[in-house]
């Protein structure tokens, strides 16, 4: 009887990561909503443009009100607003994801190594971090935009990511410093385990929830930043995205004055709000995803 109990326990705790993920997400309805929102937008960004192909322009109906043909009406040039929102999602999400990827890659690696090595390596890496933190991202992008064409999300993501990892690196380093004093890291060093093992297997899982949280938050910031750039018109438009839409709605469509362009203004705004809400709601689950103790709380 006791044997079956222990067997059951071992099976339970050996369940795959997927089950853990499902459990953590389904624990609170807010997390399900958050995840649903994120998945929705990701699908929209990936699949959406396939449905529309090239942007169809209907010059006969400028600023048309919502109708069966144009669910959200049309814009100043007679393009379908819904179509623009859908195709625009790809650029916004791709840029945010890429910049977040760069941020976490640089930030976590540099933070971990600096926190673990200390001494000269730490000083050098932290001076580099300080340098990056002082780079003013916005002006840099404006200057670069005169040289580069930000039509592809790659370049925008790279620039945002390269200038944005400083905060994550600092945060991860401080976590790593406190981890370093914990008994299990002293033990790992005492056992003679390799530095790679210590960094990847002992320390990384412990800073992961923290890093993931930073990552999600920086995604929100990146979405705001890129949309803001386009909205202000600081970067030449070369593709459809939410920022461009906002800019057009306000500066060419006069959405502030005429109600006809209101939907054109609101559509991308609501998208940004809902996506941010989705990320914030999902953030709640991250701690439990990585922390086995929280995962199995009674």
């Amino acid at each position: 009887m006791a044997a079956t109990a222990t067997l059951a326990a071992s099976v339970r705790s050996r369940r795959p990561a997927l089950t853990a993920f499902r459990k953590a997400v389904t624990r609170k309805p807010g997390r399900i909503i958050g995840l649903a929102i994120i998945v929705f937008f990701v699908l929209l960004a990936i699949c959406g443009p396939w449905f529309y192909g090239r942007l169809a322009v209907d010059p006969n109906s400028l600023y048309a009100a919502p109708s069966a043909k144009h669910w959200l009406g049309t814009d100043f040039a007679g393009s379908d607003v819904l179509q623009e929102v859908v195709t625009g999602a790809r650029y916004v999400l791709a840029t945010a994801a890429l910049s977040a990827l760069f941020t976490s890659l640089f930030g976590v690696t540099i933070g971990l190594v600096a926190g673990y090595q200390r001494g000269l390596t730490d000083s050098a890496l932290m001076r580099l971090t300080d340098f990056v933190l002082t780079i003013p991202g916005l002006p840099l992008l404006i200057i670069l935009s005169t040289v580069w064409n930000f039509g592809s999300p790659w370049k925008m993501g790279l620039i945002l990511g390269v200038t944005g990892w400083g905060g994550v690196a600092r945060a991860v380093r401080s976590q790593a410093l406190s981890l370093r004093e914990r008994g299990f890291l002293e033990a790992a060093r005492g056992l003679g385990l390799s530095r790679r093992h210590i960094l990847l297997k002992e320390m990384l899982p412990n800073v992961a929830p923290y890093a993931a949280m930073q990552l999600m938050l920086s995604m929100i910031a990146f979405i705001g930043a890129e949309v803001g750039l386009f909205f202000l018109g600081l970067v030449p438009f070369s593709s459809t995205n939410w920022g461009v839409m906002l800019n057009q709605a306000v500066f060419s469509g006069g959405a502030m004055e005429t109600p006809s362009a209101l939907i054109y203004l609101l559509a991308p705004l609501v998208c940004i709000l809902v996506l941010t809400l989705g990320i914030v709601l999902f953030l709640d689950a991250i701690d439990e995803l990585f922390n086995p103790r929280l995962r199995e709380r009674v």
């Binding site: 705790s13 914990r182 008994g183 056992l191 003679g192 385990l193 412990n206």
Partner: peptide, 26 residues
Amino acid sequence: MIHQDPYSALNPTRTVEATLGDPLRM
């Protein structure tokens, strides 16, 4: 060394199998 605090001496994100497995494989 056997540490004073058994609560901080084990990595909370790793199972006993992983904790023993790595040094044993090494």
